[in-house]
Amino acid sequence: MVARIYSPSKTAMQSGTAKTNNWVLEFNPQAPKSIDPLMGYTSSSDMKQQIKLKFSTKEEAVAYATRKQITYRVDEESTRKHRRTVYSDNFRFDRLSPWTH
């Protein structure tokens, strides 16, 4: 039973950084998912897949996993590189690429 501790990244559908400040502890699947032969639904007998615990800091998540004797793996938070662009740069004379229209 190995848990993964990570900070979720923002989704492609959001422009802000909501729900990315927390750290999440979730368990890796222990049993593979199976397909029901009659209906075709995907199911699993592993109930720990449904557990998602949220913490405000990474240290709290690590302390919880240590206290409950859960082996864990920490995926470090990747920083976003934001390149600032200015609209007036589109009209500069020393552009690297010329206008195409």
Rank of each mutant, 00 (worst) to 15 (best):
M1E: 09
M1R: 12
V2T: 12
A3M: 00
A3S: 03
I5S: 00
I5L: 03
I5C: 00
I5T: 00
P8H: 02
P8C: 04
P8K: 02
K10L: 04
T11S: 11
A12W: 07
M13Q: 09
S15I: 08
G16L: 03
T17A: 09
A18Q: 13
K19V: 04
K19S: 10
N21L: 04
N22K: 13
W23C: 01
V24K: 01
E26A: 14
A31F: 15
P32I: 14
P32H: 15
K33V: 14
K33G: 14
S34R: 15
D36I: 15
P37Q: 14
M39Q: 12
M39S: 15
M39H: 13
G40C: 13
Y41G: 09
Y41R: 13
Y41A: 15
S45W: 07
S45N: 11
D46G: 06
M47H: 07
K48F: 07
Q50W: 07
I51H: 07
K52C: 10
L53A: 11
F55E: 02
T57F: 06
K58D: 02
E60D: 13
E60Q: 12
A61N: 01
A61K: 00
A61C: 04
A63F: 03
Y64L: 02
Y64T: 02
A65K: 00
A65G: 02
T66H: 03
K68P: 01
R73A: 05
R73G: 02
R73L: 07
R73D: 05
V74M: 02
V74H: 01
D75V: 10
E77Y: 08
E77P: 00
R80L: 05
R83N: 06
V86I: 10
V86P: 01
Y87M: 06
Y87W: 06
S88C: 05
D89I: 04
N90V: 04
R92M: 11
R92I: 04
R92Y: 06
R95E: 09
S97N: 12
T100K: 13
H101S: 14
